[in-house]
């Protein structure tokens, strides 16, 4: 940036060191978690083995053999992917309508949708559990988890897409209309290619939220559709017990998302920038 010229070389070195220190501070808990997952349960609680210990794969082997990790992981992948796709399929037309054909109520509707995100889930949890279990018979199914994940993420997805779409000049869309393209054509041929960065980063964020959701998925599933959040929940023990095992489960639960994040973070940052530029 422009200020760089003004700053001294000394200042730059200080800032770089500072930034790295902060980075390490942020990284440490993750490092610790992964490190602990390679310790036996007994070693994990001994301070003298903090950094120096005999690594073991026991926890991971135990997890895949006795706890059916892959079933939970498959459930997480299925529900998160379908929920993200569904959310975008509903969210894109919605944000499109709000950004390009705003009416006087648009801001109110948007605000109202966002406000539902702020409302406590606890108020809806019991009726939902009761309804799905006793009347609809969809308790503990992929279908239910996908629907619930989509609904809780829709407001933020619509909000983010709306802020991206707003940046696109209206004339481009109008030009499409002149050429006789219908609404679906406009969305598919013009809007999606133009806002691709924003859509991709929104999708990634939505996927992360779906993957990590625990409040709902733990309570609306038992075995069939149980996700990785449920696996962690099931392995939690009173303080001091099974730290090694628990951290292996945690590391394996966040592993896929961390790998995905590594490949997509550039996309995410670019997408965010795209939305922020006026």
């Amino acid at each position: 940036m422009a200020i760089v010229a003004q700053s001294t070389r000394y200042g730059k070195v200080t800032r770089t060191i500072l930034a790295w220190a902060v980075g390490l501070l942020f990284f440490f808990p993750i490092f610790w978690l992964v490190l602990t997952s390679f310790k036996t349960d007994a070693d994990a609680v001994k301070p003298e083995f903090l950094f120096f210990f005999t690594p073991t794969l026991e926890n991971y082997l135990n997890m895949t053999e006795n706890y059916d990790y892959w079933r939970f992981a498959t459930n997480s992948i299925i529900t998160s992917i379908f929920a993200t796709v569904f959310t975008l399929a509903v969210g894109i037309p919605c944000a499109y309508a709000m950004a390009f054909n705003p009416s006087r109520a648009t801001k109110d509707v948007l605000m109202w949708m966002l406000s539902t995100k702020m409302l406590p889930a606890a108020a809806v949890l019991y009726p939902m559990t009761f309804l799905t279990k006793n009347f609809l018979g969809i308790y503990d199914t992929h279908f239910l988890v996908i629907i619930v994940l989509s609904l809780i993420n829709l407001p933020i997805v619509v909000w983010m897409l709306f802020t991206y779409f707003k940046e696109i000049p209206k004339d481009i869309i109008e030009a499409g209309k002149m050429d006789g393209v219908n609404t679906w054509g406009e969305i598919r041929e013009i809007l999606i290619p133009l806002a691709w960065g924003g859509i991709a980063s929104t999708a990634l964020l939505c996927f992360i939220f779906c993957w990590n959701e625990a409040y709902w998925t733990v309570r609306l599933t038992t075995t069939e559709a149980a996700t990785l959040s449920k696996l962690i929940e099931g392995n939690r023990a009173p303080e001091g017990l099974f730290f090694g095992r628990l951290s292996a489960v945690s590391a394996a639960a966040v592993g896929p998302i961390v790998v995905l994040g590594w490949f997509c973070q550039k996309q995410l940052v670019q997408g965010l920038t795209f939305g922020a530029v006026k």
């Binding site: 930034a19 980075g23 990590n212 625990a214 962690i232 945690s250 998302i257 961390v258």
Partner: peptide
């Protein structure tokens, strides 16, 4: 550095 600082956000609250 940005990636490292962003990473915790990919972790669930439980983890």
């Amino acid at each position: 550095i940005r990636t490292i600082i962003l990473y915790p956000f990919a972790l669930s609250f439980v983890v």
